[in-house]
C-alpha cells in the first residue's frame, strides 16, 4: 500500500501548495492517505481533536490563513455561547469545547464572515476587522450596544 511521495518527511504547519510540486506521473496510482499516524483503537468521534495523532496528510496540519483579507475577532465578554457560529462555520474554525466557545482557529479561517452574520448578541460578539488589525486594538474599538429603533 502506497502512502504517497511525501510520507517520509515530517513537516509542521504548512501553506497549502507551498511544498515541492509533484507532476501527475510521479503520483502513485491508487494513493491511500492516512488521516492519522497510528491506527486509532477508538472511534475517532470519541477522541477530542487535541488528543488525535494527525498525520502530515491531514489538512488539519495545513493552513489557508493567506486566503483572508478580513478576519473575525471574538469578544468573550458579550458571547452567550449559543454556538450558532460553531454550527454554521464552513471551515471548522470555531473552537468549542464543553458547550463553551473558546475562540477562532486562524489557521483554517478564510474570513467569509458567516459567523458574524449569525451572531445574535447586541452588539455582536464577533466582528470582522482588517487582517493587519491587532486583536487588542480591535477589542478596544468594540461598538456600544445599539438601541432598538422604535
Amino acid at each position: 500500500m502506497s502512502r504517497g511521495v511525501l510520507a517520509t518527511e515530517k513537516r509542521g504547519v504548512r501553506e497549502l501548495g507551498a511544498e515541492e510540486k509533484v507532476g501527475w506521473d510521479a503520483v502513485p496510482q491508487g494513493v491511500v492517505l492516512n488521516s492519522f499516524d497510528n491506527i486509532l483503537k477508538e472511534n475517532v468521534s470519541h477522541v477530542k481533536p487535541e488528543d488525535r495523532d494527525y498525520s502530515d496528510f491531514n489538512s488539519y496540519t495545513a493552513t489557508v490563513a493567506s486566503w483572508r483579507v478580513i478576519k473575525p475577532v471574538y469578544n468573550r465578554d458579550i458571547c452567550i455561547d449559543c454556538q450558532n457560529c460553531w454550527v454554521w462555520c464552513p471551515d471548522t474554525s470555531i473552537i468549542s469545547r464543553d458547550k463553551q466557545m473558546l475562540g477562532i482557529d486562524y489557521d483554517h479561517c478564510k474570513g467569509c464572515g458567516v459567523c458574524v452574520e449569525v451572531c445574535p448578541t447586541n452588539p455582536k460578539s464577533l466582528l470582522m476587522f482588517g487582517e493587519a488589525q491587532e486583536l487588542e486594538d480591535a477589542l478596544a474599538m468594540w461598538p456600544e450596544k445599539k438601541k432598538k429603533a422604535k
Binding site: L16, V44, S45, H46, V47, K48, P49, N58, S59, Y60, A62, T63, V64, Q83, W86, V87, D91, T92, S93, S96, R97, D98, K99, D105, D107, H108, C109
Partner: peptide
C-alpha cells in the same frame, strides 16, 4: 456542539 469534528479545516 460537544460533538467531536471529523471534517477538518484547510
Amino acid at each position: 456542539s460537544t460533538a467531536n469534528e471529523r471534517f477538518e479545516g484547510a
